[in-house]
Nucleic acid binder design. Sequence first.
DNA 1: TTTTGAGTTGTTCGA
DNA 2: GTCGAACAACTCAAA
Length: 473
Amino acid sequence: MRRHLVWFRNDLRTTDHPALHGAAQGAHVTAVYLLTPVQWQQHGLSDFKIALILRSVDRLSEQLSQLGISLQICTAKDFVQAPEAILKCAQSLGADALFFNEEVAINESRRDQAVAQVMQHAGIRVETFSSQTSMPPGSVVKPDGSPYSVFTPFKKRWLADYRPDHIDPLPAPKPQGPQPSPSATPQRVGDVDKSIGEQLWKAGQTAAMTLLKSFIKTRIQSYQASRDFPAQRGTSVLSPHLAIGTISPRQCLHAAHAANGGRLVGASEGINTWVSELIWREFYSHILAAYPKLAMGHAFKTETDSLPWGTDQEALERWQRGETGLPLVDAGMRQLNTTGWMHNRLRMVTATFLAKQLFLDWRLGEAYFMRQLVDGELAANNGGWQWSASTGTDAVPYFRIFNPVRQAERFDPSGDFVRSMVPELADLPTRHIFEPWRHGGAAGYPSPMVDLSEARQKTLAIWKQGRLLAEDG
DNA sequence: TTTTGAGTTGTTCGA
DNA sequence: GTCGAACAACTCAAA
């Protein structure tokens, strides 16, 4: 019987796993997961995310074991060492072929090309699949084959190209003989303990599916109305699972459409809006695949790279610690620091604050988010930051500058979210809580690091000047 | 090729 | 308090 090796990466599940499904057709399957601690460190992957990955690999190992599949856990220093490690594993198993799902990010696809080369050299076939998005990057294009750079036409095309078979998730393969005992990841990798965030972030595909089902059953209908209020549990919070692949976007779309009688049209506002958010994720994956320069620190709008972005380390650290003196900004940053996750509305508020009120380089904010987020994905994080900084595809106009006080009044009207994250402000009445400096301040809480009105004027002036310079050539 | 319509998520100011 | 205009034109996508 043929022997196939499946390499698991950002797809830590057994259901709707094209590579696993493909490998199991008439062959004996073994699985491998490669720990790359140095790569994770260099990439600035968050401790929350690393720990969630480790725990999810353990769950995966158990699931695979029930299917009679053994999961080998190997370690390589970084991506440079990856091809050799995978080859060794394949050869020791006598594998005929290697199966895996593709990743778009630049380092990952370089690594994968190197692996494919090494394998072919050794006479081992390589078969790749796509599952990070529902529609593979590069597949949703304009009639002339070029990529979309504006979301709305992309979404229209995506919806027009939608076919049920894009959405129907694949089953887990049938069990293949006796159950091997599951292997486990180490308790610590580098400085990271596997139990970090254990209470917050439930690992594995079963937890992900439970979360999806409860969201579809009880919250998706009110998603549109409640998604912007960080004090409410209005969003799905499935992003950590999507990031590490304990659930697939197809499974999410399938569940959303099943809740609507299997149809796409005529869904409720809640379902439509949530599906739209999943399409945003697909949009940014397409964008990153079409413009690899985005993964190398370049703005989509090239001319914005020459704006005088700041690098003030002290200002950056105040923002990072959540000590800017602007309550909603600080609440968002502290939510990120303590949980690894931040509500979408606050990602916009804190990102806009960094790029437009502090006029710090948006790349510094992007990198910090990646280093902290449990759900960090290069494509979506970069897309979101460039949107906020007005440097990206289909970005917000440069003069659209969120005012964190106004945003707090609109989206945290009771002040409860700020109170929950910023204990220094917990005793302030709602009418004082968003601008404590106007009411004598609060013990232990800093005064605002910028005057919002002045900062806004300054940013508008810089952009106007930048635009004039760009026109001059 | 030209034309036309449209573009995630805001804020401020003055009537 | 509410409302419309200004912010700034520009680029994209499709007919």
